[in-house]
Amino acid sequence: MTPSATSPVVHAQKLSRRYGARWALAEVDLEVPAGERLLIVGANGSGKTTLLRTLSTAQSASLGSLHIFGMDVRTHAVQVRARLGLLSHLPQIYRDLSGVENLRIFNRLLGIQGPVEPYLERVGLEVRPDPVRTYSAGMTKRLSFARLLAQKPELALIDEPYGQLDPAGFAFVDTLLQDLTDEGVTVIVASHQVDRARHLCDRAILLHQGQVRWQGPAIDVGRAWDVLHA
């Protein structure tokens, strides 16, 4: 089950996804080795979210093949899902439960034992019995981070980590991404905050109209963006 050191965590070949007559993703080839931090950059509608959702098995690809942890997601979705986590643009929580209860229900379904309170503290939330409905947008975002951390994924897919956060939250996301990689988690981030994120990631890909138009060191992604939109 454990991926060998040589096999990539994510291996996508000609991954394509179509909505009606529109290709949101077109023949994306992607290899992400274990422990890498990959940044996905692109304008609105360039296919970032589609790519992340497809990688997370939340939706299937129309064409192409996708292997995660060396397993074909079409046949081993359950095994793959047990080992990855997605932080999507929706918080994926129950608004009428408290923070702790939310973390607890998802962890129980995953079969993860142990207290969840430390994860709340780690994202800077108090352990309170109030329902999440009373949280601010930023607090909700922090809670979904806690949910991701509590799941202890080996592959973390994060869609727009900086959205709805205040400057203090930005710094918190930075540390968090750093911590995740320190723990050996492979991280794929999609973000508009190019200038922040590129310092935290190893490699970046630039999506435009569903295609990978550039890939290289994350630090250069700003220049690539400028060239593309020049």
């Binding site: 047990a82 986590g85 918080p91 994926q92 929580i93 129950y94 379904l109 995953l110």
Partner: peptide, 17 residues
Amino acid sequence: QVEGESGALEGLLLLPV
């Protein structure tokens, strides 16, 4: 509705449930 409101159902389906 409670499942759809904040994408919780999607969260459930992304777990090995």
